[in-house]
Design a protein around this nucleic acid. Sequence first.
DNA 1: TCGAATCTGGACCGATCAGTCCGGAATGAG
DNA 2: CTCATTCCGGACTGATCGGTCCAGATTCGA
Lengths: 193, 193
Amino acid sequence: MPRTRGFDEQQALEGAMQLFWHQGYGAASLDRLLDATDLSKSSFYETFGNKRDLLLATLERYQANFIELLVEPLRRPGAGRAEIIEVFGRVVAHALGPRGPRGCFVNNCLVEMAPHDAAVRDAARAVRDHLEDAFVAAVASGQKNGSIGSREKPRALGRFLINTVSGINVAAKWRPGKPALDDIVRVALRTLD
Amino acid sequence: MPRTRGFDEQQALEGAMQLFWHQGYGAASLDRLLDATDLSKSSFYETFGNKRDLLLATLERYQANFIELLVEPLRRPGAGRAEIIEVFGRVVAHALGPRGPRGCFVNNCLVEMAPHDAAVRDAARAVRDHLEDAFVAAVASGQKNGSIGSREKPRALGRFLINTVSGINVAAKWRPGKPALDDIVRVALRTLD
DNA sequence: TCGAATCTGGACCGATCAGTCCGGAATGAG
DNA sequence: CTCATTCCGGACTGATCGGTCCAGATTCGA
């Protein structure tokens, strides 16, 4: 039974993710989701099953479309200090966002849902681990090419860097000035010396 | 019309705060709040007005009873590196908590409510600013007595430290091992050199 | 012991939630 | 054009939400 009328499922997913991201899971009512996905109620349930399954799907999309793009510099061969700096620049821009401070989708889910929902917690943790590993690899590579000091193990530095990223995303929620975020990044990056 | 039967309002506040803290605002239904405060529905509304006002009251209590206690070392005359280290030890213990990872009450509120509720955002920001100022003062004092390096302005270091605290509280949500948190703290404290 | 003040449990309200279901409109294949 | 398939709007359900209200139980001062 092939689709003949087809609609853009990816675009619907994107809309849903944006809504979850800006409003949170609880505040994203079904009506608003229908608006955001541009779907009828029937098609919505046909396509995504239910609200929670949709959340998990948007988490996957976030991982694939945002996180992967965000850390792309860290994947370059011979990545080091410069690439980490570049990623932090993206993090700041990403956290503030063009349409109000949305923070980080995964962080938001973690805080709102993790205590109650093991599946969401696992999904969020997976994304975070992925990000941490990317930092660790870049640190190791940077220590090898001399752009990063060798006083700390890559894992420890990676954990610290991802923690700083988390903090920035929370900080974004109360709308700090860019100077405040720049202070945070500058001091944090001193640990790479 | 004086109270003759009196009940412990402070204890009710404490119970409500614990519930909000562990479950979040949305998930803390009225029924659960009545359990937690050990109040009847009528007395609940008589005492606290409504659910949201109660949240603001618990935020104040958190500020007075937890944050103030947490940063007490920073208030000691001549505070410096040692006191900051002490506070970070408390932060780790506080975030993990005895009854599951509750993170930081203010952070949780910030993420869940700040986008929708200006009053909550202001209250949370006030608590956070308070904490940041305590760090800044301790850094300034530590730079004066030589326990902390002078390469960064106290405000910048303070912003960085409070950001690290935020990150740790988010990290706690996905139940990291203590070694991971220790890595984060150790690396972060190197910025005090 | 009596009466006033305090407190409680639960019935009740309107709103909103996620989710189900179906009659019929829209569409494309043949 | 025909007709099966796809899709939509909206009525509907049952649950739960925060919040109101009051009759009556409980308690205390006098």
